[in-house]
Amino acid sequence: MRFMMIVKATQDSEEGIMPSQELVDAMMKYNEELVKAGVMLAAEGLHASSGGIRISYPEPGGKPQIMDGPFTESKELIAGFTLIEVNSREEAIEWAMRMPDPHGRGEGVIELREVIETPELTSNPDSLALHAQLRDLGRPKS
């Protein structure tokens, strides 16, 4: 099963303040560990939301609205993610626990979300409909 370890944005990351060398080194060491254990699939860090773009659909069936960043509420933003392939939810938690505190000054938050996998996803209309349903469930409500 796949999990996404989401590192939440902090005030620092949103202001473009680079993490300390110590933290960068610890993160690199951690990523290496993931690779050596054969669980790492992908890992990316994101630019601050000031360069981001948001597309929203406030009216059902209406036109999308485009909004430029920065976005407020840094806790709800993400600063980076790591995709891992593990055998259980517990293993995902264990790996996330081994990640260094991504902020180091009190604002570090890591969120774990399981990636929806549809092993029997096919051209079968029933399973496609189910997949679409599941995807909708995964969408944020707001």
Binding site: A37, V86, N87, S88, E90, E91, I93, E94, W95
Partner: peptide, 11 residues
């Protein structure tokens, strides 16, 4: 137990 199992498989 499940957590220990997971750690065991990792180690």
């Amino acid at each position: 137990h499940r957590t220990v199992d997971a750690i065991w498989r990792m180690e």
